[in-house]
Amino acid sequence: MTQQKIVQEIFLPSIHDGIRLEARLSYWKTKENVQEQEDKAVIISHPYGPLGGNNNNNVVVAVENFFLRKGYLTLAFNFRGSGKSKGRTSWTGEPENNDFRTMLNFLANSGKISDDNIVIIPKISGVIIIGYSYGSLMATSLTSSPTQYPFTTSFVLISLPLSVIWFLTFFRSSAYQTNLQNLLSSSSTRVLFIFGDNNNVLGNERWNVVELKGVDHFFVYQQMEDVLIDVIQKWLQVDSTSGSEN
């Protein structure tokens, strides 16, 4: 069959409190029975909702389109209080941590939302967890998840807001610093940090830091987005030559 692009708006109850979360699910259908195909996936999160962040953010969409062109299943979601997601942004980030886990669980459970609501998706062989700005901070919380997933995970953290963690999490900075350290101390998880003119951390053999010269926090120009995508593309190429799952 010829490839068919599938784009669906779906709503998932957050595992935190059941709040309805909006997500945009996209992939290429390559087999008549979608469940017989196997895809890699990315989950993409957005900047701080009260300042206008949502899954239609320019960086979110640029990253989403890139991975979709590469044949990945993409899941770009809205945290509570953003887009069509219900509720409101929390002070601590804890509910948003679980909003993120909700998306990961959705993929791990083969598209199951509830006993009577299952979205048909391909089998997922690996997931790249992508966070931009506030979303990257929330992504670090997934390192502390007790759940064992049936696929490998890696991380791309774009413009991680280290200097304002105290503001975004109501002075719960220590918890997020611990999450970050857990991520960095992992011997098996691949991590890509991308900053604009701000090298806040150093790298080792499992995680890379890229500083983008002349790029601001918001990637306001097309050429800034192009540079970002080029960095991710090169990281994926290194990953594929190393024989990693993601």
Rank of each mutant, 00 (worst) to 15 (best):
M1W: 13
Q4C: 07
V7R: 14
Q8D: 04
E9C: 06
L12F: 06
S14H: 08
I15T: 12
D17E: 11
G18T: 06
G18A: 05
I19M: 09
I19E: 06
L21I: 03
L21Q: 04
A23G: 08
L25G: 00
Y27E: 03
Y27C: 00
W28R: 06
K31D: 09
V34P: 05
E36S: 07
E38M: 15
K40A: 08
V42P: 03
V42Q: 03
P47V: 02
P47N: 05
Y48L: 06
G49M: 08
P50H: 09
P50D: 06
L51Q: 12
L51I: 13
G52F: 08
G53C: 01
N54Y: 05
N56G: 11
V59K: 03
V59F: 02
V61W: 01
N65H: 06
F66C: 12
F66Q: 09
G71Y: 00
Y72C: 03
Y72Q: 01
Y72G: 00
S85L: 05
K86I: 13
K86V: 09
W91P: 13
T92H: 08
T92V: 10
E94A: 15
P95A: 08
P95Q: 05
N97S: 13
F100E: 00
T102G: 01
M103H: 04
L104P: 03
L104A: 07
N105K: 13
A108C: 10
N109L: 13
G111H: 09
G111M: 05
K112Y: 12
K112A: 00
D115A: 07
D115F: 05
D115G: 10
D116S: 10
I118V: 05
V119S: 02
P122E: 01
K123R: 11
K123F: 13
S125K: 04
V127F: 08
I128R: 02
Y132Q: 08
S133E: 01
S133H: 02
S141V: 05
S141G: 08
T143V: 12
S144P: 06
P146A: 10
Q148D: 13
F151P: 00
F151W: 07
T153A: 10
S154R: 02
I158A: 01
S163C: 15
S163N: 12
V164H: 07
T169V: 11
F170E: 14
R172Q: 12
S173I: 10
A175N: 11
A175S: 14
Y176G: 02
T178S: 15
L180Q: 07
L180D: 09
S186Q: 07
S186M: 04
S187A: 13
R190H: 07
R190I: 06
F193T: 01
F195S: 08
G196K: 04
G196F: 02
N198V: 12
N199D: 14
L202N: 15
N204E: 01
W207V: 02
W207L: 08
W207A: 05
G214D: 10
V215P: 00
D216Y: 04
D216I: 05
F218P: 15
Q223S: 13
Q223K: 13
Q223M: 12
M224S: 14
V227A: 15
L228R: 01
I229D: 02
I229V: 08
D230A: 15
D230C: 13
D230Q: 15
L236T: 03
Q237T: 14
S240F: 06
T241K: 15
T241R: 14
E245I: 11
N246T: 12
